[in-house]
Amino acid sequence: MSPDAAARHESLLERVRKHHGPDVTLDHARNRTSAYIYGNILVLAAVAAVSPDSILHWGAFVAIVATTVTTFLAHVLAHGIGQQIGRSDEESRLHLAQEIRDAVPIISSGAVPALFMLLGALHVISPFWAQVVGGGLVVVRLALAGVLIERMTGRRSSWGVLWSGFVLAFASAVIVVLKVLFTH
């Protein structure tokens, strides 16, 4: 690594540590970002696949919570196994704890949509609005991913970053449509 690249790397690492804490490495910040995007896409697919009837009869709430929890568990399991390669048992245990922490953004992806499905099941809001707002907030999270990454790395957001978030949200919507069409 060149001296300039090393300096940029260290500067970025300092900004990430300032935002997330002293123990967070760039790899962990990258893993958390991936989990955030992955979790939001899968939760959005679950929200898109529910029906008004399933919202009223608790099925949508169960589906969103189950999607969130199983995605979290699958992510931790897959990364935990993959990261065991070349590590001692002690290193693997320590890494698993960090892997669980890095996967928490998946849980945050499903929390708000689950809340709106719960509100729909309790007849506080209509099933239509439960689905629109629950899914809409996930789309907003995806659209703002670039801004959040820029903030985490200490850079000023630009219009290009905002537009890239819209592209991410659109690409995610295409993935969701394909998933719903072919698997639900």
Rank of each mutant, 00 (worst) to 15 (best):
Y38S: 11
Y36W: 04
S51M: 08
I41D: 11
A45H: 01
I64P: 03
S34P: 02
F166Y: 12
A173C: 14
R32E: 13
W129H: 07
R155P: 00
A111V: 04
S157A: 12
W129C: 00
A111Q: 04
I55C: 09
L137H: 04
S34Q: 11
G82Q: 06
R15M: 06
V147Q: 08
G165V: 02
H57C: 04
I81Y: 12
S11C: 02
A97H: 10
L42P: 06
V174H: 04
I81N: 09
A63L: 07
H28L: 14
L73Q: 14
T153F: 03
L122V: 12
R17S: 03
I41V: 15
S157Y: 02
N40D: 12
P52M: 10
H57T: 15
R15W: 05
W159F: 11
G86V: 01
L26A: 09
T183A: 12
T70C: 10
V112L: 12
A114P: 11
G165C: 12
P127Q: 06
Q131C: 03
D4Y: 09
V138I: 07
V176Q: 13
V180P: 13
L162R: 13
G154H: 00
V132A: 15
M117G: 10
L144M: 11
V104F: 14
P127A: 03
A78N: 10
R155C: 00
P113W: 07
S2D: 15
V147K: 02
G146S: 10
T33V: 09
I41Q: 07
A60G: 12
L119Q: 05
F166I: 13
A45Y: 01
